[in-house]
Nucleic acid binder design. Structure first.
Lengths: 340, 340
DNA sequence: AGAGTCTTCCAAAGCGCTTTGGCTTTGCTG
DNA sequence: CAGCAAAGCCAAAGCGCTTTGGAAGACTCT
């Protein structure tokens, strides 16, 4: 059932039917009702390809998915996707994942922009002066960055959480509890979020005349194994830290294991705070010793980004609006006063 | 730059240019070269919307993403996606995620099929007599099921791993080691994979005149927390099992925690084997006690499914071909003879 | 009553590609 | 040299929708 048939059936022109369906004003209300009715009754659905060709709009949100044998998609991505999908569903948006060689994403961005395959793009895991952001910005297609990319020299729309503030708060608490030697087990420090977190820790320490020693900072891909290794390395040093801030729950699992393997305990020997993106399948309150966290739902961020992208597509949102969410500090059993 | 311009530029007709570009035979090789050259030089890329409208092909693979506040996307999905994306990239396929209300996916399947939005669909986490499989089968759009749906009364193309065989082998090993009381911590038992795994365990036990007691079977959503709870419940019973088979590494984390909390040890008091889908961020060899696993890379499955979908799209693969992959049993420190 | 203004609808022109059907030109056969 | 097939190219007809530029009729105003 296509427009032509439907129009013929109603003894109207395609124009009128099309306008009636798309809510244009120049059509009699009574006629519109007739058209709507017939459309529903015959299950008419405009062919999206045709509509796209005519309008240039696709009703899709794009994401360039870096792939490659050595590339692991972040498990955070699923949670983010849940949120995005949740909103997208209620607004009839689909999501297009365009796989790209991790080392050459530019080609793919250009392609999807040139083709007008999607109405908007979202970008994740930005780095300082991220080229993708600059590129997409010039490509003239609506987009939002999840996270921030500093030092780009221009403004752009983004949604980020207050990573610096979160880790500042966490560190401040640890310092107040008497800890003098803090360590940070961070994610990939080429990404902005990691940089911000480290900055937060340093700032809190500096406020008390302390500093974060370089040997007390690790920057690794956030896996359980890396958490374990990092923690062992930290705790086996002379002058080992008495408190650890950790960038992910998954790494925290490794930290907990390392602490135990070394015959130490949490929080007796080491206090631990980790960042929690709120995964349904791994909860800090269920750690052997309930884990203190800085908490921010990545899922909500996904939904919000979808919402804002939709707004940008329909022209309701414009300009380079940045949005920074505060992060909760949730204190549980894994922190205590520094050992004497 | 569109076809028309390019054709005009070359003083050829659109027809010829189109044919040259798409590899049709009725064009002079020399002309083809000229066309190809000019196309490359001017960065010509056919407009996908137009092409789609003309051919009905979209170059996209579809997946219906169940969403909703209560729905958690399985973290396995990312790994699967890595594999799928890896193949898709090299074949210029995009992936469309169509979010759907988890309770009404049918509408969405019908929509994407009717619209010819995608060239093929993949379906995951099938259940016995899964309605989605039946539906898509009648919709006449190429598809592949990741997993199996038994009792549908018709054949369909799928890719599955030998879940029953894997858990049969694992259980047989445990029985050979003298274990008499086995337990199974399984995933959602409405899904086929879980049914198959339980069947594998039962068959192995039956072969030695043993049986799997109902109180020794848990079927839960695969989270760390649920693994912990299930393990505690099992191990605190009278006649607690001496060996546990577990359907996921994430749950195994919980099991390990429970065992320790109860003051027991692996493998001294309890042997443990879990299924490993091969996540880069959580490896069984890095568990405190290296974990024995049944191993099958879900990532490879993703790549293979993409490959087969591509083959089906281009007509190279047809019919209801089922493909079942064997599963490795990898024995590590977490299994030992039954305690005396 | 004639002029101007809405209102409501329509024919037709794209959007950019593929594909059908046909027309030359060339080369070869008998 | 007629006859024919193959090779190489083209014009034009879609694909199904939106949108432009009217046109016809109803209504208001002077």
């Amino acid at each position: 059932m296509n427009l032509k048939q439907l129009a013929h059936m109603l003894a109207l022109s395609q124009t009128t039917v099309s306008r009636a369906l798309n809510g244009y004003p120049e059509v009699n209300e009574e006629t519109r009702r007739r058209v709507m009715d017939a459309a529903k009754r015959h299950g008419y659905r405009p062919n999206p390809s045709a509509r796209r060709l005519a309008t240039g709009k696709s009703g899709m949100i794009g994401y360039v998915l870096p792939t490659g044998a050595a590339v692991d998609i972040d498990p955070h991505f699923v949670e983010f996707l849940s949120g995005l999908g949740d909103y997208a569903r209620s607004h009839d948006l689909d999501l297009v994942l365009s796989p790209a060689d991790a080392d050459d994403q530019e080609t793919t961005y250009r392609r999807i922009a040139a083709n007008r395959q999607v109405d908007a793009i979202y970008i994740s895991s930005p780095r300082p002066a991220d080229r993708r952001v600059a590129l997409v910005n010039t490509l003239g297609i609506p987009f939002i960055v999840h996270g921030r990319s500093e030092g780009s020299g221009f403004d752009y729309p983004y949604l980020d959480i207050d990573n610096e503030g979160a880790f500042h708060e966490a560190s401040r608490l640890l310092v107040q509890l008497g800890h003098r030697r803090l360590a940070l087990i961070n994610g990939d420090d080429r990404e902005t979020f990691a940089i911000h977190r480290e900055r937060g820790v340093r700032r809190a320490l500096a406020a008390s005349g302390l500093r974060l020693e370089n040997r007390h900072v690790c920057s690794v891909v956030m896996t359980e194994e890396n958490g374990y290794r990092a923690a062992r390395r930290l705790l086996e040093q002379d002058g080992a830290p008495t408190a650890i801030a950790c960038s992910s729950l998954i790494m925290a699992l490794g930290v907990v294991r390392a602490v135990r393997d070394l015959g130490l305990s949490i929080p007796g020997d080491v206090s631990l705070i980790a960042h929690d993106d709120v995964f349904p399948w791994l909860k800090p309150e269920n750690f052997s010793v309930p884990l203190s966290t800085t908490r921010s739902s990545i899922r909500l961020a996904g939904a919000r980004i979808a919402e804002r992208l939709a707004a940008r597509i329909s022209g309701l949102e414009e300009g380079a609006r940045g949005e920074v969410w505060p992060v909760d500090l949730v204190v549980r059993g894994s922190v205590a006063g520094a050992p004497v």
